[in-house]
Amino acid sequence: MNDSSQNPAPTSTSRPAVLITGANRGIGRAVAEDLARDHHLILGGRDEQALTQLAAQFPSAEVFVAELTDYAAVAAAVDALHLSAGLAGVVHSAGILANGTVEESAPEQWTESFEINVVAVAELTRVLLPALRRARGTVVMINSGSGINAVRTRGAYSASKFAMRGLADSLRAEERDNGVRVSSIHPGRVATDMQRQLRSFEGGEYQEENYLQPTSVAAAVGLALRLPEDASLESVSIRPR
């Protein structure tokens, strides 16, 4: 489902349009706040009311409401967007954390991790490719440090993030001649609700001062989208200082 009644559609503004999944919290929200000054925002998520309230805070924004694993609904929501001028970017921020070793993880946990962290990302990107090609846009995948170095207690999560990294690499190779840039952002521990969940599982304290702020990750995303035409930020690892 899509509701663009709150703010002008991308075609009614000179701002480049960018779709952000998981836009109403954590890194996704920080990305929206960073890009709001020079982009038209398409705010993705499942909670229409929360997204509508968020969209009202920005100078140019609309909402994109869909369950990302309902592929028919995603295709319909994309069709409802005004993308005749193309799409300058898509930022894949939505994802799930799966805790547990390989021994502890049931098949359902593996299936869910790959469905949300990989398959849904690939399918949304696929249906957006025509619009991305028209605008010579940028695909940004918010990955994880676990997509570079596997974590002992998060087998399914680490595997899904390695797969997401492979997805980014494959897409980059496929789309280079079409002018679409693909950036893979690998943050370390970030001060979000997901980090609270992880620290609870680990039995440790949540110490926000030891983690990256979502705004720091958003700055890297903004760099990837705002780079001049001749450059592409292909992969970056961001760690707490």
Rank of each mutant, 00 (worst) to 15 (best):
T215A: 12
S216C: 01
P16R: 06
Q57P: 06
V63Y: 01
V119A: 04
A98L: 11
D47N: 15
M164C: 04
N117S: 04
L81H: 04
N149Q: 13
H40M: 07
R15V: 04
R196V: 12
G28Q: 05
S158M: 09
R176G: 03
N2D: 15
D193G: 03
W110V: 09
A191R: 13
G222M: 03
V236M: 14
P107G: 00
R199N: 09
K161P: 02
T101N: 08
L167W: 11
V78T: 12
L83S: 04
E115F: 00
A120C: 04
G222F: 01
E33G: 00
A173T: 14
E209Q: 05
A220P: 00
D177H: 15
V127H: 02
A135M: 12
R152Y: 08
S113T: 09
R226W: 06
T21A: 00
G86H: 02
G204F: 08
P16Y: 10
G203Q: 12
I42L: 10
L167R: 12
E123D: 04
Y206R: 09
A80H: 07
K161H: 06
R126Q: 14
G44I: 03
F114T: 02
S183H: 13
T69Q: 07
L128H: 14
E175W: 03
S232I: 12
F114W: 10
M164P: 02
R226N: 15
G137A: 08
L51K: 10
A131E: 14
L41M: 04
F64M: 08
A76E: 14
A220L: 04
A88L: 05
S183E: 13
R239H: 08
E67S: 09
P214S: 03
G145C: 01
F201N: 07
E67A: 08
Q195F: 01
N117D: 10
H40R: 09
E208P: 01
I148L: 14
G22I: 07
A131V: 13
E112F: 00
A32S: 04
K161Y: 05
T111R: 15
Q6T: 15
E103I: 02
V121D: 07
A17I: 09
P240D: 05
N149S: 13
I148D: 08
P16V: 06
L167M: 09
I20E: 06
A173I: 05
R15W: 00
S5Q: 12
R226L: 03
